[in-house]
Design a protein around this nucleic acid. Structure first.
Lengths: 201, 201, 201, 201
DNA sequence: GATGAATGAGGCTTCATTCAT
DNA sequence: GATGAATGAAGCCTCATTCAT
């Protein structure tokens, strides 16, 4: 899309890597990535010492992009339900709007070439979201379990929802909402519905 | 692990491919798979004309194995909740008991080398499970949406649950149950729990 | 065509090799030859210790077949022209009737895997033909040159003629005759045609 | 032989392929060709996407080289006999001077890996020669037959002649002349010798 | 004898990476 | 810095040959 006219080859390479890996998987050659980026084969290695580094930095970059989408306008002071809904919507909309990034991330997520360090780095600076998830766990159905479980559940359910939305664009809005309600029911307090609003506080 | 002494090289190769791909990803070389299977590299190609075929047959084989686990003892006549719980437990236990198969399947699932035909074949003969999912969708919170959405949601949540169980074996039982309750809350009817039994009919 | 019902696997293999090599060249695999012969892969090596031997024996066999065609009914006592015409027609008809053998021979002829010994063996027992060629050289336009030159010229011209006949079956008879006349003019004495009979004596 | 110091690797590879194929046949490995060319095996594939392309381009290249030899100094305005003699001599001398190219061409000519397109391309731009052959056919012994038949006959006879010259270098000149006379007698007008000169006019 | 599964060397091709320009 | 030609290790696959049944 936006092939930077500026000398920003690094970004061009990361973009091209996203597209190419989304299409061809982790096995995409550095040559094809460089070509898609409009740079010489060798130039790729001026910005990334080797392919593994490129993959790891791409992973971090996409995570960071996703984070930005979630962090933007995060309603820190809103009720829990609103905050979780924000996370949900941000993630789902991000994935829908950037299918290549999402697809590339699916590939990177299962790759043995992404280091633990990269995965750890992907976790940082989601503070508002983490805090919301902590509260959700503390007050809800997942009480006593690891916060990561709630986060992973949200991501897994959102991922499934995105897939359904992409497959049936006409029903996209319903899927987003129903998906969220499903997650909320799964994770929020199990008491009678009347009390649920209280939980979300 | 247990290298079959029988002449069943095909099975040995599939087993070795499972282990190797679980460890190294789809990029695992045919040489390493053959070696792990204890056969010559050329022998691999007597059983599978090329690597893509091996991958696709491995995919189908693992799916079939998973299916067998779910279909076994399927309580066709039980209430919906019991049947869904059976699906949940079967899947979760299968994944926990066969971490390599599960891990390999994660890799195969995102690979562009698995054909639509293979994916379609993976769907068949889950009749009891499909039927349960149809009822769940018809009567529950996902009313009006595609059955596949419910199935995918279950798989995604179970997957997440398996991950958590594997990470904290001590809490495994709690995760399995809580995970299921989360799914059930996500998908089953939203009315008060007392009415839930009615739904399951 | 005639897949021998008898136990004559050796002949079946040679036949199959002829067809397969005609179609795929010298690179045809022993497996494909065995399959075409209707025998097991390993059986081929009971009749021929290795592929090179198979190729060389095939070469000799086809040469021998060709020789048989030429030697049959050879008019030893006829005038030279008649004898040469017999050679010509025998060769041309043989090649036309057995396109696979001819095509396989074209491949074998240029192969570095055919030994000098095989080539030498291919020469023997063409006595009547050799004698005719010797006379032709002695009395004709190629006077003083090697007999092999005349033979090779005949074969080369006949080969070209066969190719033309195969390409235009409707004109086959004309090509055969014109081809022979061309060879005769090329090799026989240059004096007026009336005297030719004298030469041929 | 003379390994070009220039960066012209492509030509070096074609040269090496010529030598290697002349020696070992079409089955010569890309590794041996690359080695003979003094380049890494991978480099070969920068110039030719695969071995088949290499073979086809080699075929075209050699044909083109042969064409150049024939076209050079072609006496368009000379009498027919002179023009045909030019073709004959050019071809024979070319083949004698470049035994590897000739030998390689013999291999390529019978290979199923040379496409029809390559063969067609090999035919173009022989205009002067074609024209001469057309006249020869129109006026001579092959009257009414395809021009290609005359051309093929010339090539086949020249090929045989080259073989004889190579085998007996001492008699080379005689073979060249006698070979031509044989071809001329074979193809030119059959009328009485007195008239033959007229034809050749 | 006959079979065909098994073998592993070797062939073609790809690709991450280097380096001279 | 940027380039892309060059490299050769490594990958997938074929195949002549062996050998247990």
């Amino acid at each position: 899309m936006s092939r930077p006219k500026t000398g920003d080859k690094r970004a061009a390479i990361l973009d091209a890597a996203t597209e190419t890996i989304a299409r061809e998987g982790i096995g995409a050659s550095t040559a094809s990535i460089a070509k898609a980026a409009g740079v010489a084969e060798g130039s790729l290695f001026r910005y990334f010492p080797d392919k593994d580094t490129l993959l790891n930095e791409l992973y971090c970059e996409i995570k960071s992009d996703m984070r930005s989408a979630m962090v933007a306008d995060f309603p820190d002071a809103a009720p829990l339900r609103k905050r979780v809904r924000h996370i949900w919507d941000s993630y789902v909309d991000w994935g829908l709007a950037r299918p290549s990034k999402r697809q590339a991330m699916l590939q990177l997520n299962v790759s043995e070439r992404i280091t633990e360090a990269s995965k750890a780095e992907g976790e940082v600076r989601f503070e508002g979201a983490k805090e919301a998830m902590l509260q959700l766990v503390a007050l809800g159905r997942l009480h006593g379990l690891a916060r990561a479980f709630a986060s992973d559940l949200l991501l897994a359910m959102a991922e499934t929802t995105i897939g359904a939305m992409a497959a049936s664009p006409a029903d996209a809005d319903r899927y987003r909402t129903v998906g969220f309600e499903a997650f909320w029911s799964a994770a929020a307090k199990k008491e009678s519905r009347e009390k649920t609003p209280k939980i979300s506080e």
